[in-house]
Amino acid sequence: MLVDTHCHLDAVEFDDDRAAVAEAAVQAGVGVIVVPAVERANFGAVASVCRDYSCCIAAYGIHPMYVDQARETDLDALRETVMREQPSAIGEIGLDRFIEPRDDSRQEFYFNAQLKMARDTGLPVLLHVRRAIDPVLKALRLCRVAGGIAHAFNGSRQQADEFIKLGFKLGFGGAMTFPRASRIRELAATLPLDAIVLETDAPDIPPEWRVGARNTPDQLSRIAQTLADLRGIGLEEVAAATTANARAVLPRLIRIH
């Protein structure tokens, strides 16, 4: 079995064939799909998807790219949703230093507030860290949480080691499948296997064989094969290890399978 630790199955790109997409994932060996929210407006959609498809489990959070439209009352709504729905994690949260224009202080306010919520509730976090790894690590050192996943990790080995020290796993997906992605592939090949989880970020970050097309969670099996090839081990070993890693860092996954 495989676990897709990051898939936006609630996205509008799946409105026409969501059931077929979920079934294709299950048929491809993806037993669990973690569906993270990005803003208060899609908390309900995420909850609905996770009720409709038994392979799915939710995470709830306010994404850094959505903070401009957020209100402080959204944090109250997040806490209420977390207490009611019992999700796998708080996420997708974090910082983004790529988008322009942006409000760094506003991102930091919502990120820190959600880290405190995760600490108070004992939940892990799903982190968005694009070009913001060092400030994210700084925030994690100031507000210790119950681990989580650094989604779409693309940092240095030193930064990877710092996340691991803090109890985090590192998410690898479609970017790893590109032959020119030498740094990501080197990390995938050499990091401790118990530090790695798999993800698609569908419908985004398509693998090399789907450039320009919609990404889907059934592609996780080929992504896992890429990881196996990079490490020189079998697909079954990769599947067993990454599934165990996902369960270890997101304990509520165990209630699905």
Score class of each variant (00 low, 15 high):
Gly44Ser: 14
Val129Thr: 15
Ala70Pro: 00
Val136Thr: 12
Ile99Asn: 07
Asp96Ser: 13
Gly122Tyr: 09
Thr81Phe: 04
Lys116Ala: 12
Ile99Glu: 13
Gly148Ile: 03
His128Met: 14
Ser88Thr: 05
Arg144Cys: 10
Cys50Trp: 00
Ile90Met: 07
Met65His: 12
Asp52Cys: 06
Leu127Asp: 04
Arg130Gly: 11
Gly94His: 00
Asp134Gln: 12
Ser88Pro: 03
Arg119Gly: 13
Arg97Asp: 14
Arg130His: 12
Arg144Asp: 09
Pro135Phe: 01
Cys50Phe: 01
Ile149Leu: 11
Tyr60Arg: 03
Arg131Pro: 09
Ile93Asn: 00
Glu100Cys: 05
Val49Ser: 02
Ala70His: 01
Asp52Pro: 03
Val125Asp: 08
Ala150Cys: 14
Thr121Asp: 08
Glu108Ile: 14
Ala59Leu: 07
Gln107Glu: 07
Glu100Met: 08
Lys116Asn: 11
Asp68Ile: 06
Ala77His: 10
Gly122Asn: 09
Leu142Trp: 09
Cys56Trp: 02
Ala113Lys: 12
Arg71Gly: 08
Arg79Ala: 09
Ala132Gln: 01
Lys138Leu: 05
Asp103Phe: 06
Pro135Met: 07
Gly61Trp: 01
Leu75Trp: 01
Arg119Ser: 15
Val145Asn: 12
Ala139Met: 04
Arg97Cys: 14
Ala47Ser: 08
Val82Lys: 00
Leu126Cys: 08
Arg51Ser: 13
Val125Pro: 01
Ala77Asn: 06
Arg40Asp: 05
Leu75Asn: 01
Arg71Ser: 13
Glu85Ala: 13
Asp52His: 07
Asp104Asn: 08
Ile93Val: 14
